[in-house]
Protein backbone atom coordinates (compact mmCIF):
# COMPACT_ATOMS: atom_id res chain seq x y z
CA UNK A 1 0.00 0.00 0.00
CA UNK A 2 1.29 3.41 -0.85
CA UNK A 3 1.19 6.41 1.33
CA UNK A 4 0.55 10.01 0.60
CA UNK A 5 3.79 11.31 1.89
CA UNK A 6 5.46 9.20 -0.73
CA UNK A 7 3.45 10.91 -3.34
CA UNK A 8 4.23 14.30 -1.86
CA UNK A 9 7.86 13.38 -1.83
CA UNK A 10 8.47 12.29 -5.37
CA UNK A 11 5.32 13.19 -7.23
CA UNK A 12 6.53 11.43 -10.38
CA UNK A 13 4.73 12.50 -13.46
CA UNK A 14 2.18 14.46 -11.50
CA UNK A 15 0.53 17.25 -13.42
CA UNK A 16 2.26 20.55 -12.82
CA UNK A 17 0.15 22.72 -10.58
CA UNK A 18 -1.78 25.20 -12.65
CA UNK A 19 -0.82 28.79 -12.16
CA UNK A 20 -2.72 30.82 -14.72
CA UNK A 21 -4.85 33.53 -13.16
CA UNK A 22 -7.69 32.43 -15.39
CA UNK A 23 -7.77 29.09 -13.62
CA UNK A 24 -8.63 30.73 -10.28
CA UNK A 25 -12.24 31.26 -9.48
CA UNK A 26 -13.49 34.37 -7.78
CA UNK A 27 -13.69 32.67 -4.42
CA UNK A 28 -15.93 35.12 -2.48
CA UNK A 29 -18.51 35.00 -5.29
CA UNK A 30 -18.15 31.23 -5.60
CA UNK A 31 -18.68 30.75 -1.85
CA UNK A 32 -21.76 32.96 -1.89
CA UNK A 33 -23.21 30.83 -4.66
CA UNK A 34 -22.34 27.57 -2.94
CA UNK A 35 -23.83 28.77 0.36
CA UNK A 36 -27.12 29.10 -1.50
CA UNK A 37 -26.99 25.78 -3.32
CA UNK A 38 -25.31 23.32 -0.92
CA UNK A 39 -27.77 20.83 0.52
CA UNK A 40 -25.89 19.71 3.65
CA UNK A 41 -26.38 22.29 6.42
CA UNK A 42 -22.76 21.87 7.56
CA UNK A 43 -21.52 22.73 4.10
CA UNK A 44 -23.95 25.63 3.88
CA UNK A 45 -22.61 27.02 7.16
CA UNK A 46 -19.05 26.56 5.92
CA UNK A 47 -19.65 28.49 2.70
CA UNK A 48 -21.68 31.11 4.54
CA UNK A 49 -18.56 32.15 6.43
CA UNK A 50 -17.31 33.40 3.07
CA UNK A 51 -13.85 33.55 1.57
CA UNK A 52 -11.34 36.36 1.79
CA UNK A 53 -11.09 38.51 -1.33
CA UNK A 54 -8.03 37.97 -3.53
CA UNK A 55 -6.92 41.56 -2.92
CA UNK A 56 -6.62 41.04 0.84
CA UNK A 57 -3.09 41.46 2.23
CA UNK A 58 -1.69 38.19 3.54
CA UNK A 59 -1.23 39.61 7.02
CA UNK A 60 -5.01 40.01 7.29
CA UNK A 61 -5.93 36.55 6.07
CA UNK A 62 -7.05 33.95 8.59
CA UNK A 63 -5.68 30.58 7.54
CA UNK A 64 -5.67 26.95 8.62
CA UNK A 65 -2.92 24.47 7.80
CA UNK A 66 -4.42 21.10 6.90
CA UNK A 67 -2.90 17.68 6.45
CA UNK A 68 -4.66 14.43 5.65
CA UNK A 69 -3.16 10.96 5.92
CA UNK A 70 -4.73 8.27 3.78
CA UNK A 71 -4.53 4.58 2.99
CA UNK A 72 -3.13 5.26 -0.47
CA UNK A 73 -2.78 7.66 -3.36
CA UNK A 74 -5.95 7.29 -5.29
CA UNK A 75 -8.91 9.30 -4.02
CA UNK A 76 -11.24 7.01 -5.91
CA UNK A 77 -10.05 3.91 -4.15
CA UNK A 78 -8.19 4.95 -0.99
CA UNK A 79 -9.51 6.53 2.15
CA UNK A 80 -8.74 9.11 4.81
CA UNK A 81 -7.41 7.81 8.14
CA UNK A 82 -6.45 10.98 9.97
CA UNK A 83 -6.81 14.75 9.67
CA UNK A 84 -4.75 17.46 11.35
CA UNK A 85 -5.63 21.16 11.37
CA UNK A 86 -3.58 24.04 12.77
CA UNK A 87 -5.24 27.47 12.63
CA UNK A 88 -2.79 30.23 11.78
CA UNK A 89 -2.08 33.70 10.53
CA UNK A 90 1.20 35.14 9.36
CA UNK A 91 1.85 36.56 12.79
CA UNK A 92 1.29 33.39 14.74
CA UNK A 93 0.68 29.71 14.26
CA UNK A 94 -2.04 28.78 16.73
CA UNK A 95 -0.76 25.32 17.46
CA UNK A 96 -2.47 25.65 20.82
CA UNK A 97 -5.77 25.46 18.91
CA UNK A 98 -4.73 22.41 16.88
CA UNK A 99 -7.31 19.77 16.03
CA UNK A 100 -6.72 16.15 15.16
CA UNK A 101 -9.07 13.36 14.20
CA UNK A 102 -8.59 9.70 13.44
CA UNK A 103 -11.42 8.41 11.21
CA UNK A 104 -12.40 4.90 10.23
CA UNK A 105 -11.99 3.86 6.62
CA UNK A 106 -14.56 1.44 5.23
CA UNK A 107 -11.88 -1.02 4.13
CA UNK A 108 -9.68 -2.74 6.65
CA UNK A 109 -6.36 -1.02 7.37
CA UNK A 110 -3.33 -3.06 6.35
CA UNK A 111 -0.40 -3.65 8.73
CA UNK A 112 2.14 -1.61 6.68
CA UNK A 113 -0.10 1.37 6.84
CA UNK A 114 -0.48 0.97 10.56
CA UNK A 115 3.27 1.12 10.92
CA UNK A 116 3.61 4.26 8.81
CA UNK A 117 0.92 6.32 10.46
CA UNK A 118 1.55 5.17 13.99
CA UNK A 119 -2.17 4.67 14.21
CA UNK A 120 -3.19 1.33 15.65
CA UNK A 121 -5.99 -0.97 14.63
CA UNK A 122 -7.52 -0.27 18.00
CA UNK A 123 -7.59 3.47 17.33
CA UNK A 124 -9.05 2.94 13.89
CA UNK A 125 -11.72 0.60 15.17
CA UNK A 126 -12.70 3.01 17.92
CA UNK A 127 -12.69 5.91 15.44
CA UNK A 128 -15.85 7.48 14.04
CA UNK A 129 -16.72 7.74 10.39
CA UNK A 130 -15.66 11.01 8.74
CA UNK A 131 -19.31 12.01 8.60
CA UNK A 132 -19.44 12.19 12.38
CA UNK A 133 -16.62 14.70 12.64
CA UNK A 134 -17.28 16.64 9.43
CA UNK A 135 -19.19 19.34 11.28
CA UNK A 136 -16.25 20.00 13.62
CA UNK A 137 -13.77 19.94 10.75
CA UNK A 138 -15.72 22.42 8.63
CA UNK A 139 -16.23 24.68 11.62
CA UNK A 140 -12.46 24.95 12.13
CA UNK A 141 -11.84 25.60 8.44
CA UNK A 142 -14.71 28.04 7.96
CA UNK A 143 -13.66 31.60 7.15
CA UNK A 144 -10.03 30.53 6.73
CA UNK A 145 -7.87 29.96 3.72
CA UNK A 146 -6.62 26.38 3.82
CA UNK A 147 -2.84 25.88 3.69
CA UNK A 148 -1.57 22.54 2.40
CA UNK A 149 1.53 20.97 0.96
CA UNK A 150 0.27 19.39 -2.31
CA UNK A 151 -3.26 20.64 -2.73
CA UNK A 152 -4.49 17.95 -5.07
CA UNK A 153 -4.41 15.42 -2.27
CA UNK A 154 -6.29 17.31 0.44
CA UNK A 155 -8.81 18.73 -1.97
CA UNK A 156 -9.23 15.48 -3.91
CA UNK A 157 -9.71 13.22 -0.92
CA UNK A 158 -12.04 15.57 0.96
CA UNK A 159 -14.12 16.17 -2.16
CA UNK A 160 -14.43 12.43 -2.87
CA UNK A 161 -15.14 11.54 0.75
CA UNK A 162 -17.95 14.08 0.86
CA UNK A 163 -19.42 13.00 -2.49
CA UNK A 164 -19.51 9.43 -1.19
CA UNK A 165 -21.23 10.41 2.02
CA UNK A 166 -23.35 13.45 1.19
CA UNK A 167 -23.84 13.15 -2.52
CA UNK A 168 -22.16 16.54 -2.96
CA UNK A 169 -18.50 17.56 -2.99
CA UNK A 170 -16.59 20.49 -1.48
CA UNK A 171 -14.59 23.34 -3.00
CA UNK A 172 -12.28 25.78 -1.19
CA UNK A 173 -9.31 28.02 -1.95
CA UNK A 174 -5.90 26.81 -0.85
CA UNK A 175 -2.40 28.13 -0.51
CA UNK A 176 -0.14 25.28 -1.59
CA UNK A 177 3.34 25.51 -0.09
CA UNK A 178 4.57 22.87 -2.54
CA UNK A 179 3.37 24.95 -5.46
CA UNK A 180 5.12 28.00 -3.96
CA UNK A 181 8.32 25.96 -3.89
CA UNK A 182 7.70 24.72 -7.42
CA UNK A 183 7.51 28.32 -8.65
CA UNK A 184 11.06 28.80 -7.46
CA UNK A 185 12.61 25.46 -8.20
CA UNK A 186 10.54 24.10 -11.09
CA UNK A 187 10.30 26.96 -13.53
CA UNK A 188 8.80 26.09 -16.92
CA UNK A 189 11.62 24.81 -19.12
CA UNK A 190 13.32 27.60 -21.04
CA UNK A 191 14.56 27.40 -24.56
CA UNK A 192 17.92 25.93 -23.55
CA UNK A 193 16.31 23.26 -21.41
CA UNK A 194 14.05 22.35 -24.27
CA UNK A 195 17.02 22.12 -26.62
CA UNK A 196 19.34 20.17 -24.37
CA UNK A 197 17.02 18.50 -21.99
CA UNK A 198 17.20 18.73 -18.22
CA UNK A 199 20.56 17.51 -17.07
CA UNK A 200 20.64 18.48 -13.42
CA UNK A 201 18.73 16.61 -10.77
CA UNK A 202 15.66 18.65 -9.89
CA UNK A 203 15.55 20.27 -6.49
CA UNK A 204 13.24 18.36 -4.17
CA UNK A 205 10.09 20.22 -3.26
CA UNK A 206 8.83 17.69 -0.76
CA UNK A 207 7.91 19.01 2.65
CA UNK A 208 11.07 18.04 4.58
CA UNK A 209 13.45 19.21 1.86
CA UNK A 210 11.58 22.51 1.44
CA UNK A 211 11.67 23.12 5.17
CA UNK A 212 15.39 22.44 5.31
CA UNK A 213 15.99 25.24 2.80
CA UNK A 214 14.43 27.69 5.27
CA UNK A 215 16.45 26.28 8.20
CA UNK A 216 13.33 24.81 9.74
CA UNK A 217 13.91 21.85 12.07
CA UNK A 218 13.51 18.29 10.88
CA UNK A 219 10.28 16.67 12.05
CA UNK A 220 9.12 13.10 11.90
CA UNK A 221 6.75 12.77 8.95
CA UNK A 222 3.52 10.83 8.54
CA UNK A 223 1.53 12.33 11.36
CA UNK A 224 -1.30 14.51 10.11
CA UNK A 225 -0.94 17.03 12.93
CA UNK A 226 2.86 17.27 12.74
CA UNK A 227 2.68 17.68 8.96
CA UNK A 228 0.04 20.39 9.31
CA UNK A 229 2.29 22.28 11.75
CA UNK A 230 5.26 21.70 9.47
CA UNK A 231 3.29 23.14 6.55
CA UNK A 232 2.20 26.16 8.58
CA UNK A 233 5.80 26.94 9.53
CA UNK A 234 6.92 26.50 5.94
CA UNK A 235 4.38 29.05 4.72
CA UNK A 236 5.54 31.61 7.28
CA UNK A 237 9.11 31.05 6.14
CA UNK A 238 8.19 31.34 2.46
CA UNK A 239 6.33 34.58 2.99
CA UNK A 240 9.12 35.99 5.17
CA UNK A 241 11.74 35.26 2.53
CA UNK A 242 9.96 35.63 -0.77
CA UNK A 243 6.80 37.64 -0.34
CA UNK A 244 5.69 40.17 2.20
CA UNK A 245 2.92 40.57 4.70
CA UNK A 246 1.39 43.04 2.23
CA UNK A 247 1.37 40.56 -0.64
CA UNK A 248 -2.15 40.07 -1.99
CA UNK A 249 -3.74 36.72 -1.29
CA UNK A 250 -4.39 36.33 -5.03
CA UNK A 251 -0.62 36.08 -5.58
CA UNK A 252 -0.35 32.87 -3.64
CA UNK A 253 -3.64 31.06 -3.55
CA UNK A 254 -5.20 28.76 -6.05
Amino acid sequence: MLHLSHLKGTAPGRPRPGRGKAARPDWPRRFAALAATARDPRLRAFYAQGAAAGATALKDVPMAALDIETTGLNPARDEIVSIGVVPMALGRIRSSASRYWVVRPAAELKPESVAIHAITHGQIEAAPDLDAILGELLEVLAGRVVVVHCRDIERGFLDTALRTRLGEGIEFPVIDTMELEARLHRPPPGILARLFGRKTKPVSIRLAASRARYKLPRYRAHHALTDALATAELLQAQVAHRFSVETALAEVWG
Binding site: I93, S95, P217, L229, A232, E233, Q236, H241
Partner: peptide
Amino acid sequence: AIDVRYYKAGEQIVEFGQASEFWHVVRS
Protein backbone atom coordinates in the same frame (compact mmCIF):
# COMPACT_ATOMS: atom_id res chain seq x y z
CA ALA B 1 -0.45 26.01 25.12
CA ILE B 2 2.42 26.85 22.79
CA ASP B 3 2.04 28.86 19.60
CA VAL B 4 4.73 29.14 16.96
CA ARG B 5 6.29 31.84 14.82
CA TYR B 6 9.02 31.88 12.20
CA TYR B 7 11.37 34.86 11.94
CA LYS B 8 13.70 35.56 9.09
CA ALA B 9 17.30 36.52 9.93
CA GLY B 10 17.37 40.21 10.86
CA GLU B 11 13.68 40.44 11.70
CA GLN B 12 12.74 42.19 14.95
CA ILE B 13 10.97 39.82 17.35
CA VAL B 14 10.03 42.17 20.17
CA GLU B 15 10.61 45.89 20.61
CA PHE B 16 11.49 47.70 23.80
CA GLY B 17 8.38 48.77 25.69
CA GLN B 18 5.81 46.77 23.77
CA ALA B 19 3.38 44.76 25.86
CA SER B 20 4.85 41.45 27.07
CA GLU B 21 2.53 38.74 25.83
CA PHE B 22 4.74 35.71 25.53
CA TRP B 23 7.65 33.90 26.97
CA HIS B 24 9.78 33.00 23.97
CA VAL B 25 11.67 29.74 23.59
CA VAL B 26 14.08 29.33 20.69
CA ARG B 27 13.15 26.13 18.83
CA SER B 28 15.76 26.56 16.10
